[in-house]
Amino acid sequence: MNLASVVLLAFAMSTDAFAAAVGKGAALHKPRFTEALKTGVIFGVIEAATPIVGWGLGRAAAPYVSAWDHWIAFVLLSGLGVLMIRNACMADTTVPEGRPAKHSFWLLALTGFATSIDAMAVGVGLAFLDIGIIPVAAAVGITTLVMVTFGVMLGRVLGAVVGRRAEVIGGIILIGIGTVILIEHLRAMP
């Protein structure tokens, strides 16, 4: 996996968290930068940890599915991409009236975990490709931290509509990465 793929993957994995962060920012009453940064750190740590967990699970199963690894990665990434696009198209854009000044840690952690399930599945797919997970997880975590922090502040201004578009773009990127992996492996076969 080259640097461009890692960067695109990190961006794709953080777009659903970005979309949630825009919604979180829109739901708050004038969130401050410290609230946005706290949200970014929580989401970033969770988003970095889940692909490592997925990678560990995938490594345990890799000897049994090595002949099909590129197809598994393609199906997982493409399926997640389609799911992200579908969820973005079906998202509820209403904002409650009584807006709090900040969100609780547990609400943020739960939201961060919910948006990181796809990163765990990507970790499983990357294990089949024998890719070092630590640089990828770090890139995903840092990208998520930055995008979520920015997303909360952007949500303060723009509302929830932007978040849905970001998730669609992330879904398209995941489908593209899955397709590239499949094509590279099919071309390499004798």
Results as ranks from 00 to 15, higher is better:
L80H: 06
H70G: 03
P96E: 13
T50A: 06
P100K: 08
P31S: 12
K102I: 00
R59K: 13
V146A: 05
M90A: 15
G44A: 14
P96N: 06
A119E: 09
G125Q: 11
A73P: 09
L80E: 10
E167C: 00
I52H: 00
G163W: 01
C89A: 15
P51S: 02
W55P: 00
A73S: 15
E35A: 15
P96Y: 09
S116D: 09
D130I: 03
M84Y: 04
A91F: 12
T144C: 08
D118C: 08
F113P: 07
G40K: 08
I117Y: 04
N87P: 01
S104N: 07
R86H: 13
C89K: 14
I72T: 12
V124R: 03
I42Q: 12
A88G: 15
E35V: 12
R59D: 02
T115R: 03
H103K: 06
P100R: 10
W55E: 01
V146I: 10
V162K: 01
G151H: 02
R99E: 10
E47Y: 02
A114H: 10
I133C: 08
L107T: 10
A160Y: 01
W55K: 00
D92F: 14
I131S: 07
L154T: 08
F105V: 08
V124H: 07
V157H: 10
G125K: 07
A49S: 15
S78H: 09
G58N: 03
A138W: 03
I131W: 06
V157Q: 11
A138G: 01
A61F: 14
T144V: 06
W71C: 09
V122S: 04
W71K: 12
T39H: 08
A119R: 04
G58Q: 01
I134W: 10
A119V: 09
I134G: 00
L37H: 05
T111R: 07
A36K: 07
K30V: 07
A49E: 06
D118R: 09
A62D: 04
K38L: 14
C89M: 15
L110R: 02
R59L: 11
V122K: 04
T143E: 02
T144H: 05
M147L: 12
V161K: 14
L83Y: 11
V162E: 04
F74K: 08
A62P: 01
G155F: 03
P31W: 06
